[in-house]
């Protein structure tokens, strides 16, 4: 059932377009990396601020509010380039354990940011327990590291 969806995706015009020229995939892949830098940069800026490592004299509420705006831009870039990349090599991904690791981590990451982290951080950070803020930051960095690293490893195996 699931495999047939991946086969359909690869045979779709999007999948054919991504495979037709080797340069198409490479360019989309490079833009995907730019999105990664933006998403990862805003995650690190927010989380290292919550951990009191950087920008200590900028209010953490300002950093997470501004960081989240550009996090969303990064996420859109990654999704809009990630789907065509998947279409180009869908059946390969279906059999790749790193792909599934990444997808599960990505789902956890998106749910974590939009249902837990962001709603909580919209409150005045002075009213939140410091331990809560720090745990939130550590969890966020861990999950996005896993998404990015397992993503890179899709290409290393088979």
């Amino acid at each position: 059932m699931l495999l047939s969806f991946f086969e359909w995706l690869e045979a779709s015009s999007l999948g054919v377009f991504m495979k037709d020229l080797p340069a198409t995939f490479a360019v989309v892949e490079a833009v995907h990396l730019m999105g990664l830098a933006l998403l990862g940069g805003t995650v690190l800026a927010q989380d290292l601020r919550l951990l009191n490592v950087i920008m200590r004299d900028v209010p953490s509420n300002v950093v997470t509010e501004q960081g989240h705006r550009w996090f969303k831009v990064g996420l859109w870039i990654l999704l809009l380039t990630g789907v065509p990349m998947l279409a180009g090599v869908a059946t390969k991904c279906y059999h790749n354990p790193f792909y599934w690791t990444k997808m599960i981590a990505l789902a956890v990451g998106i749910l974590f940011v939009f249902t837990l982290k962001q709603p909580l951080l919209r409150a005045d950070h002075a009213t939140l327990k410091p331990a809560t803020l720090k745990l939130m930051a550590l969890a966020s960095m861990s999950v996005w590291f896993l998404v990015a690293a397992s993503g890179r490893w899709i290409g290393f195996s088979g």
Binding site: L33, L36, G40, G41, V43, L44, W70, A148
Partner: peptide
Amino acid sequence: VMTLMLSFGMLA
């Protein structure tokens, strides 16, 4: 590649 987040990320 991961370090792009720190270098290019902060620069951006």
